[in-house]
Design a protein around this nucleic acid. Sequence first.
DNA 1: TTGAAAGCGCTAACAG
DNA 2: CTGTTAGCGCTTTCAA
Lengths: 321, 321
Amino acid sequence: MKKQPVSLKNLADELGISISTVSRALKDNPIIGHELTQKIKDLARARNYIPNPLAMGLLRQQTKMIGVIVPDLVTHFYSSIISGIEEVAKENGYYILIASSNESLEKEKEAVNNLLKTRVEGIIACISQETSNFAHFENLIQNEIPLVFFDRVAEILNVPSVTVDGTEAAANITRHFYANGCRRIAYISGPDHLNISKHRKEGYLKGLKECGLEFNPELLVETKLNAGDAAIATRKLLELKQIPDAIFGINDTVAFAAMKEIKKHRLKIPEDIALVGFTDEFHSTVVEPTLTSVTHPTFQMGKEAARLFLNRLKKGQVQQK
Amino acid sequence: MKKQPVSLKNLADELGISISTVSRALKDNPIIGHELTQKIKDLARARNYIPNPLAMGLLRQQTKMIGVIVPDLVTHFYSSIISGIEEVAKENGYYILIASSNESLEKEKEAVNNLLKTRVEGIIACISQETSNFAHFENLIQNEIPLVFFDRVAEILNVPSVTVDGTEAAANITRHFYANGCRRIAYISGPDHLNISKHRKEGYLKGLKECGLEFNPELLVETKLNAGDAAIATRKLLELKQIPDAIFGINDTVAFAAMKEIKKHRLKIPEDIALVGFTDEFHSTVVEPTLTSVTHPTFQMGKEAARLFLNRLKKGQVQQK
DNA sequence: TTGAAAGCGCTAACAG
DNA sequence: CTGTTAGCGCTTTCAA
């Protein structure tokens, strides 16, 4: 018994005119008489006519949908980036379809496939931390399906991307620690194949060097970017003969996990150990002791990613001619 | 230059057979010869054929999309509900389209309209805190477009809904405070037209009564559910001649804001003032001092909401016959 | 066992 | 100024 949405045909029949006339009137084609146009528009409004996007899509081969893949949805970092993407998308008449990879390569591939099935016009993605093989993305590129990366980038792929330069920020943090008297500055890193991870580590090393501190391998721990791993990494650091006086976590998940672990060891932040992480505005205010942190302009990043994407899309369409 | 996706026609042409044969083979119609079926399937795979959902949708009048409206995307509470919805949706071959109302009625209406434009098959929503007029949702009901509410519900509308019974939980919290010696238990509430808000307030009052505490109007402050308002409400409480010894915040946003405000006043939690909020698992672990809290099974709620929705959808389709 | 044709809703070239 | 028609990709009668 579900009511069918009103179609152009319905309107045309009701007025006893042809479909094309209705179609034209609705788009203000000046070729149609003024009164008639008005009459048609009135009826359309009365019947609550909504153009069927499937018909349009079929005709134009475009769905007005952008696929967005994030490593995880429930982190403020990503959800606020998504908000940014959505805002710009909406302004441009686009919708976004969100998929989460849960930091898994398998799920990421699946997400790409699913999005392709829905015929999104392209994909904006942040690669999962497991992803070091990019075949599924290369496939998109070969098929000339617009692709944009944000935050975590597959650098070999030469895809338009939005990232915050972590190298300088990480170097700054290290210098900041040094300035505050820290001499055993530890760094909890992520996998090297993630650009952000690589850059931040480079920054850390650069910072150490500039401060004249020697790099101490036992103070650099690599983790997968999840809380469990980060906790283990922190424990390792806290069980050194000589514990670090500062810990620098590569992102908020890691920093939070480290914080919990430090508290468990009954150490005071920042008196016993200074702690810094990359994070975003929200958590830096709620969490206590306030996490010193490099904030990411997440919302802005999202908007920028969407803009990049839309540009890429336009270019593709021009070339098509 | 964008490559067109492969269509049935492409495959048919390449094999020199008709489209319908290809279509049938691909769905294992036994009417087609075995070898031919195989040959067709092989080619389809080789050419990476993906059925065009727009064509299918047009034919069947269904988009396999569910619209989801949340008051805000960047809260862990909602994003984890969304994850739950997504999981069940995906299992059933559905996609979700997310829209955020930003707690604004205007935006909520806009979201409904936008979703309708994309021809989602129905909507799963959590109403904004501004929403006390439900015309836009009634409209859906009249048009027999499946609708499911979660968390915040328009009770007059008689729509399938998923909520956690806050009445008992709130009464429990109040009793818990009492048991710990609190006698001036304050409650920071939300607008009365939100069911969750109403129920929790009722629970608070019920709890007071059961403990033999008299209700003190100055200890009940109503807010809009945002941080700014909640901070003001908290300040009001902290500036009473006799400050409360316990504060109960209606949700996490409110509780966090209260926490910040209490700290600003240099009061200790829970020594000077006990603080409790409804929230979810994540924040209850990160935030310090650990927020005593009633946790919501958000992921489960999302899954349940999706299930309800899918059931509702099926019912609609059966009736359609 | 296979093909031809209609039709889902819409636009746009082509006729009047 | 308005109507007719073809076609977007697909399924599904109906014919063969």
